[in-house]
Simulated scan of single mutants.
Amino acid sequence: MTINTPEKASILIVDDMEENLVALEAVLGSLDQQLVRAHSGEEALKAMLRQEFAVVLLDVLMPGMDGFETAANIKRLDQTKDVPIIFLTGTEADTDYLYRGYAIGAADFLTKPFDPWLLRTKVNVFLDLYRKNRQLAAQAEQLRRLLVGAPTPAAPVGPAGSVEPMGGARDSLSRARDAGAGASAGSGQQLAEITERLAQIELQLRDAEGAEAVGLADRIADLERTVRSLRAGRDAY
């Protein structure tokens, strides 16, 4: 299965200090991804509603809406709640910061001044996870399109050459019975089962990572092969 996914992901960097944004851009520039700036929590939320991000680097201490409040708002919205957040804190950060951040849903913390190699490494982890999830979602969508596009037996011809209306409410099994295709009925049932299994896999995509993501990809590939086999059998019929 060939899947086309965007070559570059977007990274949101949020800090009220211009010099900190410049430093982050200098460190992350070598990753060759799209870097989007935000000088405040309000700007960050607007940016996240405009486009999709693989990860957010969020300064904790900002005037107005601070990092914790910004993160809480991000996690509150269905559109953005699954985007991982890396908090950037000063050396004065203590265990209360960590507890509060992780309670909100932070994925990680980095203390300023941060090590450039460590920052790139942590960001790369989330970029890889983002790409895997995008690929899995694209595979699932392609399989769904394959299922929707599965051919059905021709409608039986009634008196005077009229075509019997099939009706949108009839499922694969009903159409197969109308055509007198016992084998097609079995195929329709299998397609229905595959559709249900696909829906279950899609529910797991959000939290999939590492070996689990690879396993889901293999399951989707198996389903695709089964669907193609069923389609070939129905076309032959």
Results as ranks from 00 to 15, higher is better:
Gln51Tyr: 00
Asp178Arg: 11
Ile85Phe: 06
Glu52Met: 04
Arg177Ile: 15
Thr226Gly: 01
Leu230Val: 08
Ala44Arg: 09
Arg228Tyr: 01
Gly215Leu: 04
Gln139Tyr: 06
Ala160Asn: 13
Asp207Phe: 08
Arg145Thr: 14
Glu164Arg: 14
Gln33Val: 06
Lys75Thr: 05
Ala179Ser: 11
Ser10Ile: 00
Asn4Arg: 15
Glu196Asn: 11
Met48Asn: 01
Ala183Phe: 10
Gln135Gly: 10
Leu57Asp: 07
Gly158Glu: 07
Arg234Glu: 14
Thr5Trp: 07
Leu118Trp: 00
Arg100Ala: 06
Gly215Pro: 03
Val56Cys: 10
Arg170Glu: 08
Leu203Ile: 02
Ala179Lys: 01
Gly105Ile: 07
Asp94Phe: 04
Leu119Gly: 07
Val123Cys: 09
Tyr237Asp: 14
Leu28Asp: 08
Trp117Gln: 15
Gln139His: 13
Phe126His: 11
Ala54Phe: 04
Arg50Leu: 11
Ile220Val: 15
Ala44Cys: 06
Ala103Val: 06
Gly168His: 08
Asn20Pro: 04
Val22Arg: 05
Asp115Thr: 04
Trp117Pro: 00
Gly90Pro: 10
Ser10Met: 12
Thr80Trp: 03
Gln190Gly: 02
Ser229Gln: 08
Ile85Pro: 07
Arg144Val: 01
Leu136His: 07
Pro165Cys: 01
Arg231Thr: 12
Ile194Met: 03
Ser229Arg: 10
Ala155Leu: 03
Glu224Asp: 10
Asn73Pro: 00
Gln51His: 01
Lys75Gly: 05
Lys46Phe: 06
Asn124Cys: 03
His39Asp: 12
Leu35Glu: 10
Thr91Gln: 15
Leu136Trp: 04
Ala71Phe: 05
Ala213Trp: 08
Gly67Ile: 07
Asp108Pro: 02
Leu45Arg: 00
Val123Trp: 03
Ser40Leu: 04
